[in-house]
Design a protein around this nucleic acid. Structure first.
Lengths: 104, 104
DNA sequence: TTGACATGCAGGTATTTACCTGCATATTTC
DNA sequence: GAAATATGCAGGTAAATACCTGCATGTCAA
């Protein structure tokens, strides 16, 4: 996993929206996704390219259409590497913070 | 939680490094963190400001020093909102993708 | 095979971002 | 109180980003 690509891909509201749209209905075409985005088709394409480069979306060509599918694997890896690590220490980290805010 | 600030904060390798450093030892000063970063102190400050604006880091002033603490709450919320959602459907999403890649 | 439709590709621009340098302020120590 | 230390603040720049318009290509259907 390229953590940087994944996080940068997630760091834009349009791209998070696209993932949500695909979560509602997987396998949508570029045109279908564009209808819901309020920007030029070419701009949406660029966002989808970034999601694809981060491996968060995979595409399949069907005739003149391009179907888009979520790939949940990178998000799972983000969870394993980033969230669980802090989750394990969550209470002790909060404890550190609280103690210091209380002034020792 | 401001998802946009959190994801944008995480979308930079230096800032992820800072979180890892604080995970190793919570409550470090700006100077201590800078020693490990290979960039000007002022640049590191900007990164820490972004982490603080995203509420991923909280700071406490102690004399002329500034101590930095991880706040694990936003990461937990990211997990709840973003990772679990896709995790719940993980197998079925992978199924969609696999079927389409196989050509039907 | 021609017209409609879905997508690809090539720039162009304004904004944001990630760095820097230089100087100012606040705190501790001698 | 003067020097050393820790951090704050104010620009300045080069690169990345998120949009756009215009045109080209590929596919389906009448």
């Amino acid at each position: 996993m390229d953590a940087d690509k994944v996080f940068k891909a997630l760091g834009d509201p349009t791209r998070r929206r696209l993932l949500d749209l695909l979560c509602e209905r997987n396998g949508q075409t570029l045109g279908q996704l564009c209808e819901k985005l309020d920007m030029a088709r070419q701009s949406a394409t660029q966002h989808l390219d970034i999601l694809e480069a981060a491996n968060l979306v995979s595409t399949v060509r069907r005739g003149r259409e391009k179907l888009h599918f979520i790939n949940p694997v990178p998000l799972h890896e983000v969870y394993e590497r980033w969230v669980r690590k802090f989750e394990r220490q969550r209470l002790s980290l909060l404890h550190d913070l609280k103690k210091e805010l209380e002034g020792e």
